[in-house]
Design a protein around this nucleic acid. Structure first.
Lengths: 156, 156
DNA sequence: ATCATATTGTATGGCGACATACTATCGAAT
DNA sequence: ATTCGATAGTATGTCGCCATACAATATGAT
């Protein structure tokens, strides 16, 4: 855990925004670390859990849901397919798309993913009440809206 | 502004944590967009502003303060030096290090960086009170501590 | 039926950051 | 004075993601 001192004694121009980014990095790191034993990273684990829960999906829908691009999602699926956790099946109604489905092996892994997720989530929420979590989420959503607006009214 | 729907109707296993990550991505995007006119990205602008404010610094200190690795910081400086915004000067007391200093041109750019930052920051804080911002920061710090703990007690 | 337009998945190239390994230099122990 | 461990900066390879461009297919207008 090297020099994360910048989070606390940040200079005036390096505030909440950069704390959020640092936190995001740490979250990814923590999840990646926990999933490493399954030879998965956070994105792969998320995709897997998503497919397991919401049935066969096209790659584009998965991309939307995961907040990734189509290309990135595609290569994520490549890797998971090679390991036998998901399969691409043709959609009889649209020959452009693949329906990504989970395999038996995939389901087994998802069990472990969910267990790990639950444990880590509990650790992360230690000392943070339900109300505070709601507050946090709510503020982030508002900030997200402001961000969307800021991004939008630049390219007109 | 493509499919960011995942932020709102997230499935059970994709909650605050992923909202934070999405928000972080959006922040970087927004700043990068605003700084694009100066041919800078967020990291470069931050480094520049930091050097301007806190005088000559070694690369390692800069890296610590920006939350980056030394290598990444080095190539950031390479780029800024090529554009004439910073200079590397030898430290008479330690021949291993460079003291990164800002140039006149660099100072001019920092003016614009700070102006842009101030405007964007104001946009992002619309509808979020001072108290709420404090709350947000405080919760993120607590979450950060939990993350540090989670990361630490895995490699023992 | 035909044709223009949109959409899906993929290939490619680039970017930003990391981890690791390496050289040069410093500082302390002896 | 020498030597040994720490530290600074750099080079290199990798990873995850994006943006762009592309071929195949679908969809809607006429």
């Amino acid at each position: 855990m090297a020099g994360n001192s910048h989070e606390l004694d940040a200079p005036p121009w390096l505030r909440v925004e950069s704390t959020i980014m640092a936190t995001a990095r740490a979250i990814r790191q923590a999840y990646d670390q926990r999933f490493a034993g399954l030879d998965l990273n956070l994105s792969e684990a998320s995709l897997l859990a998503f497919v397991e829960e919401f049935g066969p999906l096209t790659q584009t829908r998965l991309a939307e849901r995961l907040g990734l691009g189509r290309a990135a999602t595609g290569s994520l699926i490549d890797g998971l397919e090679q390991r036998g956790f998901v399969e691409r099946q043709p959609d009889p109604e649209d020959r452009r798309v693949w329906l990504v489905t989970i395999t038996g092996a995939g389901k087994d892994v998802v069990q472990e993913v969910n267990a790990i997720d639950e444990v880590l989530r509990r650790e992360l929420r230690a000392g943070i009440s339900r109300d505070e979590r709601h507050q946090l989420a709510e503020l982030l959503v508002r900030l997200g809206r402001n961000l969307a607006a800021a991004l939008a009214d630049e390219d007109d």
